[in-house]
């Protein structure tokens, strides 16, 4: 029996009366790769941000390794966030720090690693994504694909147990998409638990253990990629797939 990593129970989120997430209950097992797909405005980002409580849910629970994130103190929450890496569509690198410092700051300040340890980890990780020669430049001088790889490394440096990705390739020029997806694929192969919001259907098909299809504030359908892509059941999913797979 696989261990549950994240459990979502009757999650609701509204912004000033606008119900974006209506009632979501799902589970993520350790080592699983989940791809969340769906039309834009469906609430995918909001959902992902509820998982690490960047957005506080209006109702419902998010359990991480059995602990309810919606109902704990701030210091406890900070502690648990260390274990949940997040990669954003817009990279959100710190522009005033070099690449290596971007990666080192959280391990040093949050985990209390020494300068040398943090540097060592950062350089090893940069090497894995082929960017060790960019360690001492500022993010401004990187291409989009390089930035996103640095952002992934920055999260990995905290040694998280789960990685959340919010459309990590949507802001990239097409020729740079693959270099990022490859890194993510390797990460998946290494056994990392991942929740990925994406529009890359090829990646979803190939890498995901589960597809969650989201629309109108609900997860309309979830299943194995081969089932979902060949036999979608809901009308919303059929409509969506027709548009994207054309």
């Amino acid at each position: 029996m696989p261990t549950k990593m994240i459990e979502i129970q009757h999650l609701k989120k509204e912004f000033n009366g606008n119900e974006v997430l209506k009632d979501i209950s799902e589970e993520v097992d350790k080592g699983q790769v989940i791809c969340v797909i769906g039309p834009s405005g469906a609430g995918k980002s909001t959902f992902l941000r509820c998982l690490n409580v960047l957005e506080k849910p209006t109702a419902g629970k998010v359990l991480f390794e059995g602990q309810d994130l919606t109902n704990i103190s701030d210091p406890e929450l900070d502690k648990l966030r260390e274990k949940m890496g997040m990669v954003f569509q817009g990279f959100n690198l710190f522009p005033n720090m070099t690449v290596v410092n971007n990666i080192k700051i959280a391990p040093i300040k949050v985990k209390g690693l020494s300068e040398e340890e943090a540097t060592k980890t950062a350089m090893e990780l940069l090497k894995k994504v082929g960017l060790e020669n960019k360690a001492n430049v500022y993010p401004d001088s990187l291409s989009g694909g390089q930035k996103q790889r640095v952002a992934i490394v920055r999260s990995l440096a905290m040694d998280p147990e789960v990685m959340l990705f919010d459309e990590p390739t949507s802001a990239l020029d097409p020729e740079m998409v693959d270099e990022v997806l490859n890194v993510m694929q390797e990460l998946a192969n290494s056994g990392m638990t991942m929740v990925v919001v994406t529009h890359e259907m090829g990646f979803a098909k190939e890498v995901a253990d589960q597809i969650w299809f989201m629309a109108d504030g609900y997860i309309q359908e979830s299943g194995k990629p081969e089932d979902f892509f060949s036999h979608p059941t809901s009308d919303r999913a059929k409509e969506f797939l027709k548009k994207v797979l054309k």
Partner: peptide, 17 residues
């Protein structure tokens, strides 16, 4: 940009940090 705060918080940094 709000993303700066979000990136920092998602790395486990406290509000103060």
């Amino acid at each position: 940009p709000i993303g700066q705060t979000e990136a920092a918080r998602s790395l486990g940094m406290t509000k103060k940090q």
